[in-house]
Design a binder for these strands. Structure first.
Length: 576
RNA sequence: GCGCUGGUAGCUCAGCUGGAUAGAGCAUCUGGCUACGAACCAGAAGGUCGGGGGUUCGACUCCCUCCCAGCGCGCCA
């Protein structure tokens, strides 16, 4: 049961019986002295009708008492008109007992929707770097959570596999194959490959000429060119897939729908825009003028959907994608997990798509913007200039740092197990570092910070889990559920119990605006509360009834931690 | 020039549709391993929430203005 929702409904119902249609605005209390939940809506409601807020709060409290089982919670009217709720131990214990029997841990299913999640979406011309981490981890976590809530999630990796940037790469491949170099091994380091190709482009006239010709060949789908291109793309996709697998990201190759997939739909898109009367010809380019945008010169700026040379800029591809997602896939929602610099692009894109009838009014196409990762100087990494830390490198470094600690703290464990622990701790740390931050703010990349294993980090949560497993394994108590109710006597038991029943509140909060950091906050707080409980309340040395109640509390905490971390895409260990 | 983000403790960040005395982590200081696992716990210290106005019972949150930083704005993706 969602306690917050329960109290909100009860209170709002009573409020409306008093003739007021305001929401009760029930929230988790800001401080323990104010109970466990508080209703903030009374003051606003009183203001509307000119009543005395204290009086209204007190009337409302009486009505609430009357309509509810008096054994459920105590009420207190406080301050200018707050109502504070304190749940009874028995009510909490009962709620917890229900939670224990529920494989979904109190999280109910939503009305099912078909939701497309477009995330990661790297450019295949280059190796994945640190900048791709946000979209990838946030998109993945949100997808997992939406699935858990019962939605059909269509994962899409909209990779960049087309455009003029491939000219140099293909020309370089051509050059290498002529020189009979080992193309395969050259391609292993995509970053270096890209760098060499761009350098040649700058320095070598002939090469530059060849590169430009390859752009044309690519557009006309020249067979020899397409062969090289396919080889390159396959190599690059393998690289991405390798990163996803190492990171434990649920993207599969079959989730890839590359830009080139839409090539044969682009002309139709332009025709659609023309028949919708949206196209204006300007300097030979086909443009859509939107009311809002003004450029540097104060003139309205168009979105160019077809260049004067007949080529298509990426908004054309994206328009084709919205149409495809809407009409062919028939999604209810489409979430684009892409960095905030694209905000204007998506604003234009969705506006045009709506006007052209690609998206209908019931569909939500929305840009879930994430902040960008900055370098030490506080500047964004420029993809085109390179220099961004490779994602594969971050993974390697994190695992090797974890290895160092594991070999020190768990030297008695077999090498295989140490290796496995290092991997999960290393990967978990990276993902948690990313997910626990607010999605929208930019942050400076720092090795030590991202790969820290102390405090509010993945290892802390994983460690809490191993402590729980340790207790349970030593307890000798069989893990059959449906036991008696919890016996919550110590304050730290009550705190833990309350936190556990709030799991559903945090999961639901995430999808309200796609903020996985809210779940991270919750899990960290849960682990902290558990740690305090662990210090205060002996489990296995307590007398039988207390021991059993506490074992169940531990077990439930473990289940919530495991589930929560799983929703973030992080695995737990039995010991570490 | 216009637009979009953001500015909270020494550092990195939370702060949930306006709610009660602004919270964590790291770093610093003090205490705790013959103890269900010290990747931990208990405690201390640390703040004009960028500045200034305004709205109201109440503002980190909403409005205005200014300052600072980053990003975006006609043929790159």
């Amino acid at each position: 049961m969602n306690l917050k929702l329960f109290l909100e409904r009860q209170t709002s119902k009573c409020l409306s019986e008093l003739g007021l249609d305001n929401s009760a605005l029930v929230k988790q209390s800001s401080r323990p002295e104010h109970g466990q939940y508080q209703a903030n809506g009374v003051m606003g409601a009183a203001k509307k009708t000119g009543q005395n807020p204290r009086q209204l709060a007190s009337d409302l409290a009486s009505l609430l008492q009357e309509k509810n089982d008096p054994n459920n919670f105590e009420l207190e009217v406080a301050g200018p008109g707050f109502i504070n709720f304190t749940l009874s131990g028995e009510f909490l214990s009962k709620t917890l007992h229900d939670l224990e029997k529920d494989p979904r841990l109190g999280v109910s299913l939503d009305k099912k929707r078909k939701i497309l999640a477009d995330y990661s979406s790297p450019n295949l011309a280059k190796e994945m770097h640190i900048g791709h981490l946000r979209s990838t981890t946030i998109g993945d976590a949100c997808s997992r959570i939406l699935e858990f809530l019962g939605h059909e999630v269509v994962r899409v990796n909209h990779v960049g596999d087309w455009g003029s940037q491939f000219g140099s790469l293909l020309a370089y491949m051509d050059k290498l194959s002529e020189a009979e170099s080992n193309l395969g091994s050259e391609l292993k380091d995509l970053e270096l490959f890209y760098k060499k190709a761009t350098e040649l482009f700058k320095e070598d006239e002939n090469f530059a000429k060849s590169a430009r010709e390859y752009v044309v060949k690519l557009q006309s789908e020249d067979p020899q060119c397409m062969k090289l291109w396919s080889q390159f793309i396959a190599e690059s996709l393998d690289h991405c897939q390798n990163v996803y697998e190492r990171l434990g990201v649920a993207l599969k190759k079959e989730n890839t729908v590359a830009e080139s997939f839409y090539n044969n739909q682009l002309n139709a898109v332009i025709t659609d825009l023309e028949s919708a009367g949206l196209i204006t010809l300007s300097d030979g380019a086909k443009c859509v003028f939107l009311d809002a945008g003004k450029g540097r010169d104060g003139e309205p700026t168009p979105a160019i959907v077809q260049k004067s040379d007949g080529g298509f800029p990426y908004i054309a591809t994206d328009l084709a994608a919205t149409k495809y997602r809407s009409k062919a896939l028939q999604v209810d929602d489409a979430l684009y997990f892409v960095d905030a610099r694209q905000a204007l692009h998506f604003k234009d894109l969705f506006k045009i798509a709506k006007r052209a009838g690609f998206i209908d009014g019931n569909q939500n196409f929305v840009h879930i913007a994430n902040g960008i990762i900055l370098n030490k100087e506080g500047k964004p990494y420029k993809t085109r200039e390179g220099g961004a830390v490779k994602l594969a490198e971050v993974i390697d470094e994190s695992i090797s740092r974890a290895k160092l600690i594991v070999s020190e703290k768990a030297s008695e464990m077999p090498d295989e197990e140490q290796k496995r622990i290092s991997e999960l701790v290393g990967i978990g740390s990276i993902k948690y570092a990313e997910l626990s931050k607010n999605r929208t703010t930019d942050y400076v990349f720092d090795w030590d910070q991202m790969l820290s294993f102390d405090g509010n980090t993945a290892p802390y949560l994983m460690y809490a889990y191993t402590r729980i497993r340790g207790i349970i394994n030593n307890s000798g108590v069989p893990s059959d559920k449906n036991k008696n109710r919890f016996n919550l006597t110590d304050r730290s038991e009550v705190k833990l119990a309350l936190k556990l029943v709030q799991f559903t509140e945090s999961v639901e909060a995430v999808v309200e605006d796609y903020n996985p950091n809210l779940l991270c906050n919750y899990l960290f707080e849960l682990a902290q509360i558990f740690m305090a409980f662990y210090e205060h309340c002996p489990v296995n040395s307590s007398e039988q009834a207390t021991k059993e109640s506490r074992i169940h509390l531990c077990d439930l905490t473990g289940r919530v931690l495991k589930k929560g971390l799983e929703l973030l895409g992080i695995e737990v260990l039995e010991r570490m």
